[in-house]
Design a protein around this nucleic acid. Sequence first.
DNA 1: ATGGTTTACGTTTTGCGTAATCATC
DNA 2: GATGATTACGCAAAACGTAAACCAT
Lengths: 121, 121
Amino acid sequence: MPEKDFVSWSHAREIWEIAMELRHLRYFIAVADAGSLTVAAEQKLHTSQPSLSRQIRDLEAEVGVQLIHRSAHGVELTPAGKVFLDHTRMALVQAEAAKEAAQRAAQPARPSFALGFMSGA
Amino acid sequence: MPEKDFVSWSHAREIWEIAMELRHLRYFIAVADAGSLTVAAEQKLHTSQPSLSRQIRDLEAEVGVQLIHRSAHGVELTPAGKVFLDHTRMALVQAEAAKEAAQRAAQPARPSFALGFMSGA
DNA sequence: ATGGTTTACGTTTTGCGTAATCATC
DNA sequence: GATGATTACGCAAAACGTAAACCAT
């Protein structure tokens, strides 16, 4: 039976309707860390700038908020972008934790340790 | 400058190398809730069973663990699958929270004209 | 025989890379 | 003029849908 009362959603949108993908979040984190689309693409993600530029643009369209400010020197996070970055990191960590927890659970002998964290205010 | 000491990773794998996507997690949650690939596909995800079957299979390959046990009555979560489900839900919630936090941060402190979507005080 | 999952295959979407363009300092 | 982001476009990979096959009850 479906137990879905573990958390309450802020809005009515169902989780199946989220268009955002982890790839977008990874790209955004790389850009934020590098401060530049160019170096993030080439040195971190091993992809091309145009690809990365488009993914970031798609992400901003999905969120509906401008996350970075483009300039000639590189990119700079907007206030909304900084907030988004923090949550984004946690989401990635959670996804990776899910994978590792499943792998750990599949091997019965290992004691499980919790990789816990708090969700922001 | 990259601030990345907010959490320590369990393994050396970089986050850019994660092949898992939120779509896989959404699909998995739907299957777990429905207890069946067929009804999850048709009634929740509005897609086809073969598509869903392949996505779940891909997810299991990525995680490296069998997450569901197929039977004639439907599907049943393996112990690893149950653990994975919990973390997966949190990851989805985090991702959605990131989006909403960014939208909230983009709103000025005092909205002069309310195109509000929430019935607040 | 029925309910449910998987395989096969053709179609369509979409992400990606190269090259060219625009903008800012 | 040089650095960096965007647009245009062709290609390749992957997701999707339909149909057929398989498996257990």
